[in-house]
Structure formats: structure tokens, C-alpha cells
């Protein structure tokens, strides 16, 4: 029960932050990426604001356990691979194309009209298709 409440609360904070920060405004997001056009620096403040509590939270994990039990995530892997790079290229292209990434696409579902619903549906289909591509890339890497 505690896990559910904490997850609901964390999601609520995340959603409110995405809505209020301007991350669900595709013009602001595309403005951030449009460095050769009318550049909008707002996203730097969003990212800076988000990194502060998160960096503190990682520090607080040391020598502790999660409040609701279980254990903290393992230290991150050090190596980069083809999946990380290729996937990020595809994601970045889609992000630039419509100005929506997964968090804001979810947070804006109640006020982003049929357009937001269509983007979300296509994104969900992409997520269902992704494991096949991931397996292919993993096999290719194993054979390399």
C-alpha cells in the first residue's frame, strides 16, 4: 500500500512539474532544440531544477534502503552500446519532429486533444514494436 501511495505521489509531482514547467508546450520544446532559429532557453532551467533534488536523492541512497523496502538500483553500466546510441538517435528525431517526449505526452493527455491522443497511441505502438528491434541489435552485437 505504501508503495502504491509513493508511486502515485511521485507520478503526481512529475506530472505537475511537466505541466507547470512548460515541458508539455511543444513550441517551447522545439524552441529549445531550434538553436539556429528563435532559441528558447527555458528547458535549461527545467533540467537544472530537476537535477538538483535528484542529485541530492542519489547522495541520500548511500548506506540506506528504500523507505518502502527492496533495494536501490545497481550502479549504472559504464559501457555505451549500439542500442543506446541508435535508440537515442531515433528518439531525438521524433522528439524534435513533434516536440513531445514520453513524460509530457502522458502528463498532457487530459488537455492535448486528439493530437496528443494520436501521438500517445503511436508512441505506445512503437513501444510494443521496440523489443523486436532490440533483440535484433543484441544478436548483431553478440555476433560481432
Amino acid at each position: 500500500m505504501l508503495r502504491m501511495l509513493l508511486a502515485l505521489g511521485a507520478g503526481g509531482l512529475f506530472g505537475a512539474g511537466l505541466m507547470l514547467s512548460g515541458m508539455t508546450d511543444t513550441a517551447k520544446v522545439q524552441g529549445w532544440l531550434d538553436i539556429f532559429g528563435n532559441w528558447d532557453p527555458t528547458l535549461a532551467f527545467v533540467m537544472g531544477g530537476a537535477l538538483l533534488p535528484m542529485a541530492l536523492a542519489w547522495r541520500l541512497t548511500e548506506g540506506r534502503r528504500p523507505a518502502a523496502g527492496g533495494s536501490f538500483p545497481a550502479p549504472p553500466k559504464a559501457e555505451l552500446d549500439r542500442r543506446l546510441i541508435l535508440g537515442s538517435v531515433l528518439f531525438g528525431a521524433g522528439w524534435g519532429l513533434a516536440g513531445l517526449c514520453p513524460g509530457p505526452a502522458i502528463a498532457s493527455l487530459s488537455y492535448n486533444g486528439w493530437e496528443g491522443a494520436l501521438f500517445f497511441t503511436a508512441m505506445a505502438c512503437g513501444m510494443l514494436a521496440a523489443p523486436a528491434l532490440s533483440r535484433h541489435l543484441d544478436r548483431a552485437a553478440a555476433n560481432a
Binding site: 508503495r3 505521489g9 506530472g15 514547467s21 532551467f45 537535477l51 538538483l52 542519489w58 541512497t61
Partner: peptide
């Protein structure tokens, strides 16, 4: 942007410190 960003980071902190 900054205020909203802090809320986003706070959400991440709750999910990490609460649920791991």
C-alpha cells in the same frame, strides 16, 4: 521552468528514495 523542474526532480527523488 525552474519551479516545474524542481517538482519533476522531487517526483524522481520520492520514487527513488521511497520505492527504490
Amino acid at each position: 521552468g525552474l519551479g516545474g523542474g524542481l517538482l519533476i526532480g522531487l517526483g524522481g527523488a520520492v520514487y527513488l528514495l521511497g520505492n527504490g
